[in-house]
Computed example of a mutant assay.
Amino acid sequence: MNLKTKNPALYYLQRAAFYLLVLVIAFYLLAPFFWAVLTSLRSPGDLFLQPAQFIAAETTFQNYTQVFANPNFQRGLLYSLIVAVGSVLISLLIGSFAAYALGRFRFRGKQIIMYVILAVSVFPQIAVLSGLYTLISALGLYNNPVGLILTYLIFTIPFTVWVLTSFVRDIPGELEEAALVDGASPLQTLFQVLFPVMMPALVTTGLLAFINAWNEYLFALTFTSTNRTVPVVIANYSGATQFDQPWGQIMAASIVVTIPLIILVLVFQRNIVSGLTAGAVKG
Rank of each mutant, 00 (worst) to 15 (best):
V67Y: 04
F68T: 06
F68Q: 01
A69D: 10
N70V: 01
N72K: 07
N72D: 10
F73E: 00
F73C: 01
R75S: 11
R75T: 09
L77P: 06
L77K: 04
L78F: 13
Y79P: 00
Y79D: 00
S80L: 09
I82F: 10
V83I: 15
V83L: 05
S87E: 05
S87W: 08
V88I: 12
V88F: 06
V88D: 03
I90R: 01
I90N: 01
S91E: 07
S91K: 06
L93Y: 09
G95C: 11
G95E: 05
A98N: 04
A99I: 09
A99H: 10
Y100G: 00
Y100V: 02
Y100N: 03
L102P: 00
L102R: 04
R104D: 05
F105P: 01
F105K: 14
F105E: 04
R108H: 08
R108M: 12
G109A: 10
I112K: 05
I113Q: 08
L118R: 02
L118Q: 10
A119R: 08
V120E: 09
V122L: 12
P124S: 06
I126T: 14
V128A: 12
L129P: 09
S130P: 00
S130N: 11
S130F: 13
G131S: 14
G131C: 06
L132C: 06
Y133M: 11
Y133C: 01
Y133L: 15
T134F: 13
T134L: 15
T134I: 11
S137N: 14
A138M: 13
L139Q: 13
L139M: 15
L141V: 08
N143F: 11
N144S: 15
P145K: 02
V146W: 12
I149V: 14
I154V: 15
F155D: 03
T156E: 03
T156D: 07
T156M: 08
F159N: 04
F159Q: 08
T160N: 07
T160Q: 08
V161E: 01
V161Y: 05
W162Q: 02
L164R: 04
T165D: 06
S166L: 08
S166M: 10
F167P: 00
V168A: 06
V168R: 02
R169C: 00
D170P: 01
I171Y: 06
P172G: 12
G173Q: 12
E174G: 11
E174T: 14
E174Q: 14
E174Y: 11
L175F: 15
L175P: 01
E176N: 07
E176W: 02
A178S: 15
A178P: 03
A179H: 00
V181I: 15
D182A: 13
D182S: 14
A184K: 12
P186T: 07
T189Q: 08
T189F: 01
